[in-house]
């Protein structure tokens, strides 16, 4: 990709005290990188008028304090940063990938639908596990529920439709597949995703700051573990001694 091929970002008015910078109309890593690059630049600028940022797939919502700033001022502020914050347009994005490892116990009571997913894909359960855990998933954004990661990059060979009838209660930590998406339920909730495993790691802890183990814009790697290892991790999580493994890789 060469300079100038990025679509021109648009600044959209969002009520009396927010603006949205939209970088395009697709879900892709390049667009998402631009969102997080701008978010980082806004934070680095230390503008006290900025109240809160909500980065999503392809846009950044910027809430501001209407007693300290105005639509016009904030538009100018963001325009300046957009120009200076654009990530490298080289073929290789040079910023390192932060990869967080989530241990997952696959199948059985941990993931009741693993065999259905394997059946749908026409492969063995072990193959589904190996494909699912063999990819690093980009955390495009967190939303829907506290700590819920919108992940991208699942291999379409294991894509499976949602359950026709959603479960009333999906346990926290459940790892599931819905169509071409994969995700983890941070808190117990109703849901229709096909459950293939469970992670003992807590994806949302309101007593921690930040309340989530990984930040949007980073990556998740699912690491298959045995039931016994999952139990051991669960014990460490509950006594507060577990730390999610994070490694940095060249982009």
């Amino acid at each position: 990709m060469t300079a100038g091929t990025h679509p021109e970002p648009r600044i959209l008015i969002c009520g009396e005290d927010a603006l949205v910078v939209e970088f395009g109309n697709g879900i892709d890593p390049v667009t998402n990188d631009r969102v997080y690059a701008l978010a980082a630049a806004v934070e680095a600028a230390g503008n006290i008028s900025v109240a809160e940022l909500i980065p999503t797939y392809r846009s950044l919502m910027v809430h501001y304090d209407l007693e300290l700033s105005s639509v016009e001022e904030m538009t100018g502020f963001l325009n300046d940063l957009i120009t200076s914050s654009e990530p490298s347009t080289d073929d290789q994005n040079n910023s390192p990938r932060r990869i967080y490892e989530l241990p997952v116990a696959y199948g059985g009571a941990h993931g009741e639908d693993l065999d259905d997913v394997a059946g749908h894909a026409g492969m063995m359960a072990d193959e589904v596990i190996s494909i699912h855990s063999g990819t690093d998933y980009r955390v495009y954004m967190l939303g829907f529920a506290p700590g819920f990661p919108y992940l991208g990059g699942m291999d379409e060979r294991i894509a499976t439709p949602r359950l026709a009838s959603p479960r009333v209660r999906v346990p926290a930590g459940s790892v599931g597949i819905a169509e071409t998406q994969t995700g983890v339920y941070p808190i117990a909730s109703p849901g229709g995703w096909r459950l293939i495993g469970n992670t003992p790691v807590s994806l949302f802890d309101p007593s921690a700051d930040p309340p989530v183990p990984f930040l949007p814009g980073s990556f998740i790697r699912f690491v298959p573990v045995s039931s016994e290892d999952a139990k051991r991790v669960a014990a460490q999580v509950s006594d507060g001694t577990y730390r999610v493994q994070m490694t940095e890789h060249e982009g």
């Binding site: 969002c14 009520g15 939209e22 109309n25 999503t56 797939y57 392809r58 919502m61 939303g143 919108y150």
Partner: peptide
């Protein structure tokens, strides 16, 4: 494509 929402939207 899902994006940020806010009060009164």
């Amino acid at each position: 494509i899902s994006d940020g929402v806010l009060s009164g939207a």
